[in-house]
C-alpha cells in the first residue's frame, strides 16, 4: 500500500504492507529513532505521538493512521536543537543504554504539555507504558521533575 502521513510536521508518503505495524513502516522509511523492543505494546521503545497523544507505534496498523500527525523523538528536538526534556534526561543521568530514551521522552513531552507541574505520582503514571532496564527509573523521574521546573521557568520568562 501507499499512503501519506504528516511526520514531524512534513508530509511523507510511505510504502507499507497492508498488515504492517506503524513501527515497522516508520523504521523502514528511515525513522530509526523509533525503536523496536517487543512488538507487543509493552516496552514503549516505539512510542510516538499520534495527533499529540502518546501511543505504542507497534500497536497500530499503519494503514489505519493515514493522513494523521505523527511525531517521533526527532520532531521534538534533535542533536543540534535539543528540547529541554532531552537536555534534562542527559543532565540527570537518565540515559544509560538509551534504547528506551526516545519513548520516555515522548511520554514526558505529552505529560508536560498537558500538565506542566505534575506530582511524582502523575509522573510515574505518565511513564507506565515504558520499560527501562538500566536506570531503575530513579534518574528518569529526576529528569522529568527537572524538565518540569525548567519549562515553567521558561514560561515565566517568556
Amino acid at each position: 500500500m501507499k499512503g501519506t502521513f504528516i511526520i514531524n510536521g512534513q508530509s511523507k508518503t510511505m510504502d507499507f504492507n497492508s498488515d504492517e505495524r506503524l513501527v515497522i513502516s516508520l523504521r523502514n522509511n528511515g525513522y530509526t529513532e523509533v525503536k523496536n523492543g517487543c512488538l507487543e505494546g509493552e516496552c514503549g521503545a516505539c512510542m510516538i505521538l499520534l495527533d499529540d497523544m502518546p501511543v505504542h507505534s507497534c500497536q497500530i496498523f499503519t494503514a489505519s493512521v493515514q493522513n494523521k500527525n505523527i511525531t517521533t523523538i526527532k520532531g521534538i528536538g534533535d542533536l543540534h536543537l535539543p528540547h529541554i526534556i532531552q537536555e534534562s534526561f542527559v543532565e540527570a543521568g537518565a540515559v544509560q543504554c538509551g534504547f528506551c530514551s526516545p519513548g520516555f521522552i515522548i511520554a514526558t513531552y505529552a505529560l508536560l504539555k498537558k500538565n506542566p507541574n505534575p506530582t511524582e505520582n502523575e509522573i510515574k503514571q505518565a511513564i507506565d507504558g515504558n520499560l527501562c532496564r538500566c536506570t531503575g527509573y530513579v534518574k528518569i523521574i529526576d529528569a522529568i521533575k527537572n524538565a518540569s521546573k525548567l519549562i515553567q521557568k521558561e514560561r515565566v520568562h517568556s
Binding site: G41, G44, M47, M53, P54, V55, H56, Q59, A107, G129
Partner: peptide, 11 residues
C-alpha cells in the same frame, strides 16, 4: 483509569 497503560488507553 488504571487499565492497561497510558499509551494503550489512548488507543
Amino acid at each position: 483509569q488504571t487499565s492497561a497503560d497510558t499509551p494503550l488507553r489512548n488507543r
